[in-house]
């Protein structure tokens, strides 16, 4: 088994670790996309416009209520169709295949965005109105108030839950293996198929996922402490 999971031509260790890098890259892109979408979604939910609120509500309800796998299938099979439709308008008639990385990152990103929306909305609402009042009393403009008062506190309130959202993104990347992207899951399947030792490879995949989730969990715990450095603890 040591030889099997070792480095170099004989072992699968280097392939698996490279695949772990791919998992991390997809998860990171998806999480960042989710943060951007989530900030927009939270802004829409907290806005004065009914139509925006309704749209954001529909978005979070739908994407939190259907399986991620369906979203991946939609983008994987439907995404290239939509692109080809647009391309045909511009006179291009060939087949276009969307990159599996982009499909995965976008699919998981928009699912993650639904969770991030709720997290960020809750964090914005958790900022005490007195803080905003005090900022106004100091004569801060809206942008200064956002930068100095609102954003740092929203970050602090949102961080613990964003840590959970990140863990979700990390674990959901395993589903992208159905599109053929060589991340941990896919690489383990390939290794299991060619060596007839599935348990060894899926166990190795488990270890890699555990390392990723544990190390990033510690990172988030550190970030939480950093964001709460100005708060007195009981």
């Amino acid at each position: 088994m040591i030889q099997l999971l070792g480095w170099g031509d004989q072992g699968w260790g280097d392939e698996l670790v490279r695949a772990a890098g791919m998992t991390l890259a997809v998860a990171l892109c998806a999480f960042l996309l989710g943060l951007v979408v989530g900030s927009g979604g939270a802004a829409a939910k907290l806005s004065r416009f009914r139509a925006l609120q309704a749209a954001a509500d529909a978005y979070t309800t739908v994407l939190r209520g259907i399986p991620e796998l369906l979203v991946i299938y939609l983008l994987f099979f439907g995404g290239s169709g939509a692109l080809m439709y647009v391309a045909r308008i511009f006179g291009h008639t060939g087949y276009i295949e969307i990159n599996a990385f982009a499909t995965g990152a976008v699919a998981i990103g928009i699912v993650n965005g639904a969770y991030s929306t709720e997290v960020i909305r809750g964090a914005v609402l958790a900022v005490h109105p007195g803080q905003i009042e005090a900022a106004k009393a100091y004569g801060m403009s809206r942008s200064v108030m956002f930068r100095r008062i609102v954003a740092p506190q929203v970050l602090r309130y949102a961080l613990p839950s964003l840590g959970n959202v990140w863990q979700l993104a990390l674990k959901e990347t395993a589903l992208i293996s159905v599109t053929g992207l060589v991340e941990i899951m896919r690489q383990a399947t390939v290794g299991a198929g060619s060596t007839k030792q599935p348990f060894t490879f899926y166990a190795a995949a488990c270890v890699l996922y555990l390392i990723l989730t544990t190390v990033s969990g510690l990172g988030f715990a550190r970030a939480e402490r950093w964001a709460a450095r100005g708060v007195r603890r009981a």
Binding site: K171, A174, M185, A188, P198, A205, C206, Y209
Partner: peptide, 8 residues
Amino acid sequence: TPLLVQVF
């Protein structure tokens, strides 16, 4: 770990 790995 992801549920998919557990299933596999």
